[in-house]
Amino acid sequence: MNILHFLNTFFSDGANWHGQNGIPHRLLEHLQYSAIALAIAAAIGLPIGLFSGHTGRGGYALSAFATGARALPSFGLLVLMTVWLGELGTTPAMIPLVALAVAPILVTTHEAIRSVDPAPVDAARGMGMTSLSVLFQVEVPVALPLILGGLRSAAIQVVSTATIAAYISLGGFGRYIIDGLASHTYADVVGGAVLVAGLALATIGLFWAIGRLVVSPGVRRGC
């Protein structure tokens, strides 16, 4: 019994390709949880990071928050939220995922804006750009690769950690792992883990493609 055998068993099982417990359906669920968690985290992290980076205020508070957020155990938070809130749909699962994702987005965005060369910012202010224009027309385009980097690492963590949603009777690729462990069907466990890893890699690819699309060639410098 080796890994390849498990994989062969899992992926050649026709039952795993359709229906409620099929890979396409579980993929959709997994993507849905990840996307929602990432969207909420970005909605919190990006504006705060952009504002604090632009004004240079709140850097210390941010790094303190980030350190705290990184120390939070996602699984413990999931259990706590479930006990506390009850099994209210996806909410108990979203809270630990968002908490996980906000820190890298927030801190990286702040640092990305801070690290923009001050000369063009000075030039932009001196030629009469409003503060918002300076932020969105000068700072953000230049900081974009770093900001996307923060979003990417948040997304990878969310995709990997979204497996725990299955622990509170939700779907996603975590289903295979949790159920496989419970029923000693190790082929399902290995199959689910490989799917999660594959999705994480696909996420990296997605962000690379987004970067190619939205980052100016002048900032990418031909790479």
Partner: peptide, 15 residues
């Protein structure tokens, strides 16, 4: 209403 030129030009590298 005033042109402004600084050291190192301060060009917008994304434009």
């Amino acid at each position: 209403s005033m042109g402004y030129v600084i050291q190192n030009a301060g060009l917008f590298q994304h434009r």
